[in-house]
């Protein structure tokens, strides 16, 4: 990979200042390092966020739980379990144990891989993405494949999750990468059901409005009978055709409703 200078600030203010000069943030690096090895990124300066205590941890706040941006998946799996079991279970299915010890929620949310798990949890829960300058509703945050509402130099400092009455995440694992071939996050709140799908669309994570309406009326797998998604905008690759992914969306949502 191209060489770079690594800096490791000890607080958020120093990290923000370092990134404002055009540097790239480094969180767990489980996506960024492979990208850099392929010389698809040449950041010049990397600003490690792993040494900033205020970006770490899981805590209960008003109306939900707040997870620091630099919190590794393994810590979320362990510490969020008592507050939001479906979210902890999702974190515990990302990659493999060694990846979960390094990869972070902030890194995943900032990267917005179209097959990543966390975007489904954030959108499916109606989470708030917290940055060093503002709070962004998940509905406004995810803008398409690898695209988010983040500005240059903005850092995801945390994610605030409202805790639903019932929720579950089910993914059909792509066995080599362990990413979701299709994953569905279903969450039932007092005012309705949210359904977010990852892995399927060329536009990244999305909400399935018809499934939400059907499940809000009747939170049961049979409520989804006959509902289908068009395959037009679905990802098609050697692991599955667009039609296959469209079909899997319905199957995964039904399984998630049963598991919730």
């Amino acid at each position: 990979m191209y060489d770079f200078t690594l800096v490791k600030p000890k607080n958020l203010a120093d990290a923000v200042a370092a990134i404002a000069d055009g540097a790239q943030a480094l969180s767990g690096g489980q996506t960024l390092l492979p990208t850099m090895k392929q010389r698809l990124a040449d950041p010049g300066t990397l600003v490690s966020l792993s040494g900033i205590p205020e970006l770490h941890g899981v805590c209960k706040g008003d109306g939900g739980i707040i997870i620091g941006g630099a919190t590794p998946h393994a810590v979320v799996a362990r510490e969020a379990a008592k507050y939001y079991p479906a979210l902890a279970a999702l974190a515990n299915q990302i990659g493999d144990p060694a990846v979960r010890n390094r990869g972070t929620i902030g890194g995943s949310i900032a990267n917005n891989d179209p097959s990543a798990c966390y975007p489904a949890a954030a959108l499916g829960s109606g989470a708030i993405i917290q940055t060093n300058t503002r709070e962004i509703a998940a509905d406004d945050y995810f803008r398409g494949m690898f695209e988010t509402a983040l500005h240059e130099g903005e850092i995801v400092t945390g994610v605030k999750f409202p805790v639903p009455q019932k929720a579950a995440y089910i993914k059909f694992v792509q066995p080599a990468s362990r990413f979701a071939l299709v994953g569905a996050f279903v969450a039932q709140f007092a005012d309705g059901v949210r359904v977010a799908i990852t892995g399927a669309s060329n536009n990244g994570v999305f909400r399935w409005a018809e499934a939400e309406a059907a499940l809000s009326a009747n939170f049961a797998p049979k409520a989804l009978m006959g509902l289908t998604l068009p395959a037009d905008d679905m990802i098609s690759d050697l692991h599955g055709t667009a039609e296959y992914r469209a079909h899997l969306c319905g199957v995964m949502v039904k399984r998630a409703v049963m598991a919730a």
Partner: peptide, 26 residues
Amino acid sequence: DTSQCGACVVHVDGLAVKSCSVFAQD
């Protein structure tokens, strides 16, 4: 060298990590 195979796993502060996907300086 792409964090798939796990042959490079070591423990860092007691946790298993893939050493091909961590910078030494970090």
